[in-house]
Amino acid sequence: MSGSLWPLIRRDVRRGYAGGGATLVVVFFLLVATLFPFAIGPDAALLARVGGGVIWAAALLAALMPVERLVAPDLEAGVFDQLAIRGQSLAAVAAARMLAHWLAFAPPLMLATVIAAGLLDLSAETLLLVEAGLAIGTPGLAALAVATAALTASLRGAGAIAGLVMLPLAVPLLIFGAGALSGGASALKLLAAVSLLLVAGAPFVAGAAIRAAME
């Protein structure tokens, strides 16, 4: 008795962009990326060398921004109750949310990366590698964000704990994503493997966590 999840995905994407949600992520991402030139100094050669890694670190931090809004508000509003009584599996609901979050999170971030690359004086090849890495890595990052949001949804001060839960788990993405800048194709393959693993596993973790939080 479970209908299509398309209305839910559309709603979640709309809510991702609504209220400046996506803008906030982009602004935060650019802000973090800008901090490095200030901290390191205007050494163009050095910035160009570390720039790719800086973008990855900034992307990881920006991915934390929406975590508090991903699951907790809907849990409180009873949205998951209403979805569950409609026979929707919560893992499927979580997967839909991951897709929606990725759609609201990755495209603005990848566009902003072009700007950040300009700020950090990255070469065109480096930018291309960063964008390729982000395209492969952001689904994993989105999956991790939703799973973390579900795990911390019923906790007080979830924002801080979410960072503690999510960032260590995102380290493989960072290693292989930034590694692709020097390691090339083999690092991208490992990045894809990590991303795939997260995308495949996270819906079940998130679904179970939401179910537990509903009781």
Binding site: M1, R11, A18, A77, Q82, R86
Partner: peptide, 16 residues
């Protein structure tokens, strides 16, 4: 027919 409809404390309607 859908099996169940629930009216609970939380309205589950998007405020905006």
């Amino acid at each position: 027919r859908p099996p169940v409809a629930l009216l609970a404390e939380a309205a589950a309607l998007d405020g905006e």
